[in-house]
């Protein structure tokens, strides 16, 4: 087994009711009538109107990345070729795919391009790349469950294959109906 070639700088978790940074709870869902992702968005003082156009998978990923990077000291102005993203989940974009499927029913056929664009699992990596201007490696994998050892292997390999990479935003971002499971981290070579 290859030796781990990176350090974890910060970690976060989001479930359907809790958001944590480095194991510390920063928000607990109290009001079930309000959308949890919007609640979290406001609670962390995020200002990114595009957020409200996104599907739930992208919202989960973009909130996870925000928890990791909102106080991070890095170049916010220019695209950083030395930053990469590697994410995985088990439901790919099925949560939004079911939504698109409803728009193409035989008796109510009205396919929406705004919904269709989110029917790809890796759009969440694209949204995070745009928000945080990361221009390096960007990969999305689909696995039955979160295999952290595989994740670390893939991150290690990305570092070996791409000598210019310094930071990688990585982890698990799964949204499937009621289930929300975000476990992300920023690692540094």
């Amino acid at each position: 087994m290859t030796e781990q070639s990176f350090n974890t700088l910060i970690k976060c978790e989001i479930t359907a009711s809790t958001a944590k940074v480095n194991g510390q709870t920063i928000l607990q869902r109290t009001d079930a009538s309000e959308d949890w992702f919007s609640q979290l968005y406001h609670a962390i003082g995020m200002q990114y109107p595009k957020f409200f156009k996104m599907d739930r998978l992208c919202k989960a990923g973009i909130l996870g990345a925000e928890l990791l990077l909102k106080d991070f000291d890095y170049d916010r102005e220019n695209v950083k070729a030395d930053w990469g993203i590697i994410l995985m989940n088990s439901a790919s974009s099925l949560d939004n795919d079911r939504h698109f499927q409803e728009t193409i029913a035989t008796d109510n056929y009205y396919p929406s391009p705004a919904v269709f664009v989110y029917t790809l699992a890796n759009i969440v990596t694209g949204e995070i790349a745009i928000r945080h201007k990361t221009g390096g490696e960007s990969s999305f994998y689909v696995m039955p469950s979160f295999d952290e050892q595989l994740m670390n292997t893939l991150v290690n390999q990305a570092y070996m294959a791409n000598p210019e990479l310094t930071h990688i935003i990585c982890g698990w971002v799964n949204v499937d109906g009621e289930e929300v499971d975000v476990r992300m981290k920023v690692v540094e070579r």
Binding site: V79, I123, E127, H132, E137, A161
Partner: peptide, 10 residues
């Protein structure tokens, strides 16, 4: 092989 993101548009 190499992958890079434009960080421009989805």
């Amino acid at each position: 092989g190499a992958i890079n993101n434009d960080a421009n548009h989805i």
